[in-house]
Design a binder for these strands. Structure first.
Lengths: 350, 350
DNA sequence: ACCCTCTGTGAAAGCGGTTTCTCGCGCTGT
DNA sequence: ACAGCGCGAGAAACCGCTTTCACAGAGGGT
């Protein structure tokens, strides 16, 4: 904000043009219907004084800010950044701005953060909120109109856009199965992540449907470092294929395995999830499920705008990931499938 | 914004507590000095009615929004995303929020965008603005207090934080030189990028200081796709080492070269810049100059906050990149240094 | 008893716009 | 000539909060 008295206000323009503030307002908003000469006078005064209306004052008077908030659990996560990018660019086309906030993976902060954000904005996009369904429903009214990404909620009237993680993870598992793998290990994401729960459930179903498969589960996390940390555990599980929560974990896992002398995919296959821009450039290139996050952000905006403008929330959108088969998966080698001791000398982390 | 009349206002609380709005305001802001019983009454009324002050109205009255804008040329660039992350988290600690905007690499949009953003915020951080110095000076007053990232401007009183790209690129060139390379090609970034100019100038100096070096220059871009596109040109230049504008370009280049059968670093060495999180996981891992972008964002906030609070802008901060030597650089092979025709059959793109 | 200070609270004027309501004026119809 | 109408533009209320200023009442000094 400029120092008091520094900026030119609507009153200054009105005085300069010899009209009332109301007239200036009307001219500035193309709502003026009177004599063209008056409008012209106002316009020249405005440019002469370098006037532009205060968005703040307009927001207060109009009750709309042309701003939308995005709340993510971790702004450093490339997937969320991609969503942010898509949302920002799409919203910009309708001259909306995006306010970002990051709950730093603290679910308890989310409700208060979201509510506070909402007061500054016309709407808020909750991206993969970790808060409980109960809390979500609690604050839903205060947040409306709100959009949900990767967190469908049956009891809230809001546009909801999600990735079908279940279908994606099943496709990945099937791909590994088709290659001959029978012993899998799943590296789980954040405990309270809904998308993690989706993956889990899908794997449960997969396990049930294919009884000759053994599926281990490790609680891991969502970050590269998490993947690296559990490399030792993964190898010790003797699974021939690791299904990582996401690409970051997969990349960390591959790196951690490599540091311990385990080769991918020769000794163990690894899959990621998300298809972050760099997944194709890792060594080896990562087999993963491609998720159009940027598009997800853009679509969220599209739906949200319609919703803001009074249309219904629309049906839940469930985007299908597309499996990208790359170099990090291969048929299990006989050796690793049979020999119990692997090429690891000192097994990595605990 | 909520529908008119839906939210409870300060007047509602005042009425409910049997006091004046002024008193409520004072209580809510811990500026109340009267009878404790009154304060207590107000507080219970407030919680009972679920009241929280409108940030918008406060902003208008107080002349401060507790919001800061970040303007970047391309929100999808990981370097800018890292800066955004650092800024967002640092600002959050002081309960400030970040409004993001993206000029989509259109320099002419920047001044108007920045000015508009500034009206909504207490301050704006210009990240690598592509606009001319002239324009920047023109709008500086309207933007103040402003912070500059990767774009020092001698004539503007503002905190300025930059990466010493010149020093970084020289270190990379020196590293290649030490390995025996004498023929370099530089893949230039966006024409109007100041950081690109810095790199260019440093390479000019390097060329002058080491006369036995031949340095080609290719105009490229800042994205993976740009790097891939010029792979053919790079190989045709017969340079034994390619210095890419940044990691994205380097990654694209390596990929484009690989597609044409050129191996890195066997046939040609490649360096990037930035050390994005994935640089160490590419194939081969990328030799690059590590830049602490997240820290840059955090430091920017720190300086900006001090500046907002009336302290001086402080000295220009020049962060030194640290060269990370990885697998994408090696001594030039005799073959590629001598033989004019390379392993390419149909040279890649034009 | 009186004046003066001090204290707790409210009234009102901002902040910078938008919008409803009103009013004066020139025009038309009879 | 006069009622009625439409039109152009201003006055004023309002959005929700902060803050200055004023004021009533309590308390203390002489």
């Amino acid at each position: 904000m400029a120092r008091r008295g520094t900026t030119t206000t609507i009153a200054d323009v009105a005085r300069h043009a010899g009209v009332s503030p109301a007239t200036v307002s009307r001219v500035m908003n193309d709502r003026f219907v009177g004599e063209p000469a008056v409008a012209e006078r106002v316009r020249t005064s405005a440019t002469e004084l370098g006037y532009s209306p205060s968005p703040l004052a307009r927001s207060l008077a109009l009750g709309e800010t042309h701003t939308v908030a995005l709340l993510v659990p971790d702004i450093r996560n490339p997937a969320f950044q991609a969503i942010l990018g898509g949302l920002t660019r799409a919203a910009a086309r309708d001259s909306y701005r995006v306010l970002v906030a990051d709950s730093a993976e603290m679910p308890d902060e989310e409700p208060v953060l979201a509510t506070e954000l909402r007061r500054r904005c016309d709407s808020v996009v909750l991206c993969a909120p970790r808060m409980s369904e109960e809390r979500l429903v609690e604050i839903a009214a205060a947040l409306a109109p709100v959009a949900l990404i990767n967190r469908p909620s049956p009891s809230i009237a809001a546009p909801s856009l999600s990735i079908d993680y279940g279908s994606g993870i099943k496709k990945l598992a099937q791909h590994l199965y088709d290659q001959g793998h029978r012993s899998f290990v799943y590296l789980g994401g954040p405990e309270r992540s809904v998308s993690n729960a989706r993956r889990r459930r899908a794997l449960d179903e997969f396990e049930e449907a294919t009884p000759d498969v053994v599926l281990h589960r490790i609680s891991c996390g969502a970050d590269t470092e998490d993947g690296r940390r559990v490399a030792g555990l993964v190898w010790e599980s003797r699974a021939t294929a690791a299904i990582a929560f996401n690409d970051l974990v997969a990349v960390g896992l591959v790196d951690g395995l490599g540091a311990a002398g385990v080769r991918v995919p020769d000794d163990i296959s690894v899959t990621g999830f998300d298809d972050i821009p760099f997944a194709r450039y890792t060594s080896p290139p990562l087999t993963t499920a491609s998720v159009p996050y940027e598009e997800l952000g853009a679509l969220a905006w599209q739906r949200l705008l319609a919703f803001i403008q009074g249309e219904g929330p629309g049906d839940d959108l469930l985007l299908q990931p597309r499996v990208e088969i790359r170099g990090s998966t291969a048929a299990p080698s006989v050796r690793t499938a049979v020999v119990s001791a692997g090429p690891v000398e000192a097994s990595g982390a605990g």
